[in-house]
Amino acid sequence: MTHILKHSKALLTRVRRITGQTQALEAALLEQTDCNLVLQQLAAIRGAINGLMAEVLDSYMREHLAAPDVSHESREQGMEQLSRVLHSYLK
Rank of each mutant, 00 (worst) to 15 (best):
A54C: 14
A66E: 09
E63F: 15
I4H: 14
T13I: 09
P68W: 09
Y89S: 14
V56M: 12
T19D: 01
S59H: 08
V15D: 02
I18T: 00
E55R: 03
G20K: 06
P68G: 07
L52A: 03
T33R: 15
Q41N: 01
Q23F: 00
E80V: 09
V56R: 05
V56W: 07
I18R: 06
V70D: 04
E26L: 07
A28S: 09
Q21F: 08
R46Q: 14
S8F: 06
Q23E: 11
L25Y: 06
T19G: 03
E63L: 04
E80F: 04
Q41F: 03
Q81V: 09
R62P: 00
A10N: 05
R14N: 01
I4T: 08
A44W: 00
M61I: 14
A43L: 05
G20F: 00
Q41Y: 02
R75E: 06
Q81C: 13
E76P: 00
L11V: 06
L90S: 11
A28L: 12
R62D: 14
N50T: 10
D58A: 07
P68S: 15
T2Q: 12
A67T: 07
T22Y: 05
M1H: 04
L57A: 09
M61C: 07
V15F: 04
Q40E: 06
I49M: 15
E73N: 05
R84Q: 13
H64M: 12
L65R: 06
I49W: 12
T22G: 05
L65G: 01
L90M: 03
R75L: 01
L65S: 01
L65T: 02
N36G: 11
Q81S: 12
A67M: 04
I4L: 10
L57P: 00
D69F: 05
R14Q: 08
A43P: 00
S83R: 14
I49H: 07
R16G: 04
I45F: 02
Q81N: 10
G20T: 02
D34F: 08
D69M: 13
L37R: 03
R84F: 04
H72M: 12
V38S: 06
P68K: 10
L52T: 08
R17C: 02
D34L: 14
L37W: 02
R62T: 10
Y60M: 02
P68V: 15
A28Y: 08
L5D: 13
L82A: 12
M61D: 06
L52S: 02
T13W: 01
N50K: 15
S59R: 08
Y89Q: 09
K91C: 12
T2I: 12
Q23Y: 03
S83A: 10
